[in-house]
Design a binder for these strands. Sequence first.
RNA 1: GGGCGCUUAGCUCAGCGGGAGAGCACUCGCCUUACAAGCGAGGGGUCACUGGUUCGAUCCCAGUAGCGCCCACCA
Length: 858
Amino acid sequence: MSATRPLSVPDLPTQYAPAEVEAPLYERWVQRGYFTADVDSTRPRFAMVLPPPNVTGSLHIGHALGHTLMDVIVRRKRMQGFDTLWLPGMDHAGISTQTLVERHLAETEGKSRHDYTREEFVAKVWAWKEEYGGKILGQMRRLGDSVDWTRERFTMDEGLSVAVRTIFKKLYDDDLIYRAERIINWCPRCLTALSDIEVDHSDDDGELVSIRYGDGDESIVVATTRAETMLGDTAVAVHPDDERYRHLIGKQVRLPLTNRRIPVVADEQVDPTFGTGAVKVTPAHDPNDFEIGQRQHLPNVVMMNERGIITVPGPFEGLDRFEARSAVVAALREERRIVAEKRPYRHAVGHCSRCETVIEPRLSLQWFVRVASLAKAAGDAVRDGRTTIEPASLAPRYFEWVDNMHDWCISRQLWWGHQIPVWYSPDGDVVSLGPGEEPPPGWTQDPDVLDTWFSSALFPFSTLGWPDETADLKRFYPNDVLLTGYDILFFWVVRMMMFGLYAMDDVPFRTVVLTGLIRDQFGRKMSKSKGNTVDPLDWMDAYGTDALRFTMARGANPGTDVPVGEEWVAGSRNFCNKLWNATRFALLNGATVSGELPRDLAGADAWIVSRLQAVIVEADDLYERYEFAKAADLLYHFAWDEVCDWYVELAKISLAGPRADVTRRVLGEVFDALLRLLHPIVPFVTETLWTALTGGESVMLAPWPAADASRGDAAAEAEVAGIQAVVTELRRFRSDQGIKPSSRVPARLAGLSSGEAEIRALGRLDVPGTHFVATAVLTTAGGVTVEVDLSVDAAAQRARLTKELAAARQEREVNTAKLANEAFVAKAPAAVVGKHRGRLAAAEADIARIEAALSGLQ
RNA sequence: GGGCGCUUAGCUCAGCGGGAGAGCACUCGCCUUACAAGCGAGGGGUCACUGGUUCGAUCCCAGUAGCGCCCACCA
């Protein structure tokens, strides 16, 4: 089929084939520039931030969720007439990319990065990025992301690098960036510093050993989970008020296994109720101990290297930290220094979030962002509503974080990334230089690179041209919406808030929409070890992109995790197919979309148009409030239960009659609107169907549906509800009686004010012949009686009626009791009391009707 | 140790002061001329437990028991 010609009816087979339409449609959208923002547009703008995926990444199910929901937002805004910008980009992902390329070099060339100069290695990473990176961009196309490809950016490209250097210098000049020797989180495998949030804590089994330091009267017992670090101990600390140890304060005790003597110091930080109330102090290898060491002016003894290998001369030298732990405990036991052991001992242990290696607190010289004022501003912006967090229930997490933030360690001992724009003179002078500024001859640049999140934090404005006052920056900053998983609230959202407010003096976005995480069909977290991960591309291949997208949207209640299973995607595929065939029906029957919709609608036509107005209002509201699951569910049920199951069936009757033209116009109206309402979620199938139905260029260019309140028609809704009640009753009767759908039952109808033709058609009733004998009478709750001529299975009918009678009696009892309660009648709202009176009356009428029918069966 | 949340049909989840809902699964019957990726009918729940507030509680409050998530430098 041609990508440029609207489909004609014979082109529509009975099954939707997504594979045939998706790729050509996407290319057509891109080529025609539908996704491209127009900086000169006079329309209002809508800008949304895309969380830039890792350049090394590939589309996983979490992306599928986030990208689907973002695309839903932006496609609707576009149809609403906004000039939209959804700017795509990728993140250079420092550690993971470098690790990947190092592994690649090891496998293909058997070399490590240290076999190359830094420049050579970085060149290889760039080459790798060009060749293998960015696979995810193609996958975003597959998913249908309506991003503005003309503005695609990369966090390491020239413009963004300028932004990084500019803000670094500004922060440095404002004394918000500093260099200091601190205990930082060090990964002995990645060989780099990490920030606090790149460390995952888990409760691991370890050991707690109590060791006697010193000898005789001047001895003291300390407890530790890290016996090996005693080699770097420079004190024992006790609480100043602890009577047990007062006599030892200021004295020296001998450190076992060494010839060193270390002081006993008093420090408020020690908890006298924990363990023995005495703690060994290793300032170079523990953050708490470092603080004690600073206060007590203790020396720092470094006892292991960057790979976690013991460097203290002696029997333990060369052992790795875990081997050393056992060896040290064994040696202490030999000397009868171990006075207690607890094993296993569960305690929190930090792991590298990338490689799971146990983190080593390490004393080293690193760069930090002084976050206090920045975090305060980020918190205030949410507190005073300049930025809102959706759902609001997740805001406390944000505040908890910004209100308790530690300074951010931003230097990484890697080669791939933005090299820290600071130069040192041979004499040790330091200067930070902005873009274009050259260091004096002989000065050398700091070898470290910046944390990847440093550049990601600039994404909402660096991508728009900052620090230049570009037209894009003026038009699209601040962005309107950021949508992302709650798992990166701290990594990224908080930091964008801090830097956006700092650099632009305005929030980076007005609304943060937080989504949950994908889980499997049993609600379990997806993980490779559980083997329950899924590849969204497999599901797109099997069921189509729209099926995947609809599944994502339908599961996405605000802030809650989203369980998905293959059966659910299949169900969504079925829904797309239902839309396909229903629209196909409309086309086969000459549905029209041009011309004013007639005012004098009647019956089913008036009903469905009335319902459509209500659905438009409700769907629009749900979309606006990011209630994706409820919007999807509403449209699913309107389309399937009302349009397909009832309206299409009723329209078949009208299409054979004198008002066929009106019905053709209503069919066109309903499907036109329905497809537009669904387009943000399922863009491909709706585009295919809408262009076929309307002959229009693209549903993307069609206006977002607006409800017309004057089309509301309560009378028509009541009329159709009456028809539905009788038809359902008839179908139940037929089912109970085992009457095949293909056989028509002669019947006489009475008590109807309208809708006889519809009831006859949907109930598959024949007009009575000359020999008609009423063998059974059905009287519906609405007072309609249907006499049929066929041999009735009285037992089946009695069973049915008996059951209905029981239900009606129960209903009568409940309402009788309620109305007999004087307090209820006196205090409940009149409307509620009236409602129960009505229910009681209806129950009594039902009982009378059913009892009569039962006696008629005898 | 702090903070937040959850417990509703077999599974996954909506609902959150006045008649228990959806999808999937299940049972029965159907190729009824848009669709078998479908159509029609049906079965299935003391809404975790115990108290309280209320004329009325799945919904509000308190407690209990499970479960989950986030944060945290207690050796």
